[in-house]
């Protein structure tokens, strides 16, 4: 039975079981590959998307539970917070292998939307669930601070 998902502002028909995780519907069914598979157990954050603006682990979100909620992936990210985060990420060259960075950015946008001026502790607390095996963490902290100041400007 087809399920309609609202992703990045468009309706997408997905002909898949209700218990299929949103991650695989986005990636394998709809072919949007910016959202990554990292662990499948909500332990690494690589699959982070926004569901009605809330950072959510797509690998543990059955498509049957999404309903009409607005799903945003890295491909659909926009707005001043996203621009501040992505430009800070680029200017500080946060990335190494880059595989986790879609998820890191989705979480960072969630953090700065909720708390525009986080300190290191707030960053660590919020970003704890996003693993980076390259350990780009010092730059992630710095880029979030940088994005925060760009949002003020």
């Amino acid at each position: 039975m087809a399920i309609t998902l609202n992703i990045n502002g468009s309706a997408h028909e997905v002909d898949a079981p209700e218990d299929m995780p949103l991650l695989w519907a986005i990636r394998d069914v709809l072919g949007m590959t910016g959202t990554k598979f990292g662990c499948g157990v909500a332990s690494c954050g690589a699959c982070t998307v926004h569901v009605d603006g809330e950072p959510t682990r797509a690998c543990q979100t059955p498509i049957g539970s999404v309903g009409e909620a607005a799903v945003t992936t890295i491909e659909g990210l926009s707005g001043p917070v996203a621009e501040a985060v992505q430009s800070a990420w680029q200017d500080l060259d946060v990335v190494q292998c880059g595989y986790c960075q879609s998820g890191q950015i989705m979480s960072a946008v969630g953090l700065l939307t909720e708390n525009p001026k986080p300190d290191d502790q707030a960053i660590d607390d919020y970003m704890w669930g996003n693993v980076c095996r390259c350990a780009t963490y010092t730059r992630i902290r710095a880029a979030i601070h940088e994005a925060s100041s760009r949002m003020e400007a």
Binding site: I74, Q86, Q90, D93, V94, G98
Partner: peptide, 20 residues
């Protein structure tokens, strides 16, 4: 600037996992 930064911060970098 790293040559791979923009692709890797916009979800457009292609990894083998993304080859379909």
């Amino acid at each position: 600037p790293r040559k791979d930064s923009v692709a890797k911060t916009t979800g457009t970098a292609t990894f083998a996992m993304d080859v379909m």
